[in-house]
Each structure stands twice: as C-alpha cells, then as structure tokens.
Design a binder for these strands. Structure first.
Length: 109
DNA sequence: ACGGTGACGAGAT
DNA sequence: TATCTCGCCACCG
C-alpha cells in the first residue's frame, strides 16, 4: 500500500503509543527492522507538519531525555506535553524509561 | 544516481 | 559522570 515508506512506518508505529507512555528512537528503529536507523526515525519526526496527529512528543532518546537540539521552543513544549499526560520529568530531564516506556505488543497491523 | 542532511547511539577520553 | 567524535541510514533535489 501507500505506507511502504520508512517514514510512514515510523508514523504508524508512533501513533500506537498511548498517552502517558513514551518510546525511544532506537526502539522504533528496531521494531522496523533497522536497529541502526535511529537517526532516520528522529528525522522522520522532525519532518512532521505542525498540525500532525502523530504524537511525536512521546518519542525521546535512549537516555530518557528530550532531544530537539537546535529548535529553541520545542524542548520546553515537549516537556509540557509529556507532563500533561502524567509523565514525571525530573530536574535533570531524565524520564524513567523503566516506568514509562511503552512495549509495542502488536506493532504494525 | 549521488551526496548532503539530521528529534540518534555507543564508545572513548 | 559529562563531553566529544564518529558511524549509521532513509529521504530529497
């Protein structure tokens, strides 16, 4: 179908993450069969338009921290969104993955 | 077809 | 533990 692109698969997978849970770029990459394509996963989310229904804010790096390097506003914005969903973000910015990381059970449909 | 790009990751210092 | 460096790979013009 139209969703054979790597990007589309990323979007589909990220859309499965429920409110209050998070996933890592590496986790997504592994589920898509490319353990080393984590950068591409991040890039795919970077390309999302502003009004996208994809919950991009629920994806963080393997350290449990918010990435969003150069873009100034996004880090705080993403933190706010996560806290609104009940995720506790410590002062050092490290989210407890053992508590909040979502385990994709059924992956793609 | 080719090379630059980039919300990453892991190892080295 | 904090930083720095380098390798990775799909997308786009």
């Amino acid at each position: 179908m139209a969703n054979s692109n790597f990007f589309e698969q990323v979007y589909t997978l990220v859309s499965q993450i429920p409110s209050g849970k998070v996933a890592t770029y590496r986790q997504i990459a592994i589920l898509l069969g490319n353990p080393r394509a984590s950068r591409t996963v991040g890039w795919a989310l970077h390309q999302l338009p502003e009004g996208s229904p994809v919950p991009w804010h629920r994806v963080i790096n393997a350290q449990g921290k918010i990435s969003t390097t150069t873009i100034t506003e996004l880090p705080d914005w993403q933190k706010i969104l996560l806290e609104q969903e009940g995720i506790r973000v410590p002062n050092d910015g490290r989210i407890d993955l053992s508590q909040y990381q979502y385990q994709f059970e059924a992956a793609l449909g």
